[in-house]
Design a protein around this nucleic acid. Sequence first.
DNA 1: CGTTTCTGGTTCTAAATTAGAACTAGACGT
DNA 2: ACGTCTAGTTCTAATTTAGAACCAGAAACG
Lengths: 168, 168
Amino acid sequence: MAKRISLADADCPVARALHVIGDWWSLLIIRDAFDGVRRFSAFQTGLGIAKGMLSARLRDLVERGVLATEPASDGSAYRDYVLTERGRELFLVIVALRQWGEDHLYRRGERHSFLIDVTNGEPVARLELRSADGRALRWNDTRVQGAGEKCKPRSVAPRPKVTSRRRR
Amino acid sequence: MAKRISLADADCPVARALHVIGDWWSLLIIRDAFDGVRRFSAFQTGLGIAKGMLSARLRDLVERGVLATEPASDGSAYRDYVLTERGRELFLVIVALRQWGEDHLYRRGERHSFLIDVTNGEPVARLELRSADGRALRWNDTRVQGAGEKCKPRSVAPRPKVTSRRRR
DNA sequence: CGTTTCTGGTTCTAAATTAGAACTAGACGT
DNA sequence: ACGTCTAGTTCTAATTTAGAACCAGAAACG
């Protein structure tokens, strides 16, 4: 009665994504993979994660096609964990999280790492949402359409039935 | 000895972000909030989450400034949970997750909801990363710079010391 | 007004998950 | 050939979770 609820078959793409990478460690492992970490021990020391947990998370990520193992690039008999194409496409998720963290989770004057363009060393541009024809969009310029049960659109947001609206 | 490791003071903005919204339920609660859900019972039935868990997650999100409570919009004496400015800026994180989920987690022909521009009903443009001067960037056109201990750049990715490179 | 139902929780319990330590097999280095 | 390193697995104790039961105050009802 305490097994975590599965999101695997939700209608919402967000829920499905979280089913795959929504636990405490997966995105950190993936972030490290983007930073060039490939070996079990490197993930382990870089994250400070318990070996058993790392082992389980890597197995899940490989199973779900986000990571793959390949022969170690240094020619040893060990194996490297590398991002698959599916995994590499999580880059924007990491960038979006990074941008939000940079914006909201540092005190004034506190320094943090940032993402630069390797061709010229300049910080990358801010991520932003645009319409099909290129206008910048804010959250309330959009709506979810074609939702199934687990993805209710704003228009029909259920509200507990309160008939009168007296405030006392 | 099994308390979850805290990410609060990590150097990496990604880790800090995950400290705030990186658990199993928070992003789903936030997604529902973007879809217009405001009431405790609406979150509960929409997510199928246990009341105790929802109560704890809402408390944390309010504490961390992602949500706030305000008098219910229908005039009753109850309270609504609404996104703060900080919370609304998580929109791109949700959009990035949605895009990845849509791209990789549906079988051919399986339908899913999608995000549309309310002004014309068309799907929004794909999210993409650009350089300061507007060039599209891929993950390997970028690098993390100014990393602290928990954010190792690719260039110094630690690798177990293996001096020879014989494969046997 | 008095009673019933709904809302928004809190508390309790059993099961699952986690962190960390200890152990191990096979690869490496010398 | 021997000792060390890597990449795990296994074990235990503590924490977290899901779900049910309980409860106080607000709203609806007559």
